[in-house]
């Protein structure tokens, strides 16, 4: 037996634009998370599609869903089928590349986003069924989170005390941490912290965390449940 706890709305839902929860809704969700990580000034996006995403993306509207997510649209937004036109209006160029490499999970995409200042964000995510997703990489660092919870991601320098300062701010605002993981490239080098919380993380809390010495950026990804 599967020990996962199901909400009624995992079964009856989500409300979504068809035709496939994994190939359409999940794709839109991964791309929307990518946008939240990259920021709003997106100029140019490359989507590298693996396995089933690569072989059936046009018939499932996976391409339209990915572009919609990049524009910040939710999987149930009726503008989703017209996302290519919307991207053009916003001068965002998009490119799809089919990979023949194996990605461990059938529905996987790498999204490489360039913003107007030239910064590059590179994320890897998989759509795992029912519109649920797992983010697996941010800028070459392995991570793992689903977007089901309110998620705080920090880019920071790996040094003592940073984690304590972040959790102190969250505690002050009575934000409970459900799950937390820290990832780093090298000792003392760039690190990423992913905190999944039960409560909404307001903008002023995000700013307080970003102002901590040693934190380069703090990003909040709104929970799927809060945007239902």
């Amino acid at each position: 037996m599967n020990l996962r706890e199901y909400s009624v709305f995992d079964i009856m839902g989500p409300i979504m634009i068809g035709p496939s929860s994994s190939h359409t809704a999940g794709a839109a969700r991964i791309a929307k998370i990518a946008r939240q990580i990259a920021g709003d000034d997106i100029k140019d996006v490359q989507f590298i599609l693996y396995d089933s995403f690569a072989s059936t993306y046009k018939g499932h509207g996976t391409d339209k869903a990915l572009v919609a997510g990049i524009l910040g649209l939710d999987p149930d937004d009726e503008r989703l089928p017209h996302s290519f036109e919307l991207a053009k209006e916003q001068n965002i160029s998009v490119l799809f590349i089919k990979s023949d490499k194996d990605a461990q999970h059938p529905n996987t995409v790498r999204i490489i986003i360039k913003d107007k200042s030239g910064d590059v964000t590179d994320i890897l995510g998989s759509s795992i069924g029912g519109g649920n997703v797992v983010l697996k990489e941010i800028n070459g660092m392995n991570v793992e989170f689903t977007g089901e919870y309110e998620t705080l991601i920090t880019k920071h320098i790996d040094k003592p005390g940073i984690i304590a300062m972040v959790t102190k701010v969250l505690a002050e605002y009575k934000i409970n941490i459900a799950f937390m993981r820290v990832y780093r490239q090298l000792k003392g080098d760039n690190a990423i912290m992913v905190i999944e919380s039960d409560q909404v993380i307001p903008e002023d809390v995000r700013i307080s965390i970003e102002n901590i010495n040693g934190i380069e950026r703090a990003i909040v990804i709104n929970s799927i449940k809060n945007t239902y």
């Binding site: 009856m12 409300i15 979504m16 068809g18 035709p19 509207g61 339209k64 009726e78």
Partner: peptide, 21 residues
């Protein structure tokens, strides 16, 4: 058919089976 044409539906329990319920 709405699902297959990229219209709005409720996955119930999935998009592929969204017509039955």
């Amino acid at each position: 058919e709405v699902n297959a044409s990229m219209g709005k539906i409720v996955a119930a329990p999935t998009a592929g089976s969204s017509g039955v319920i």
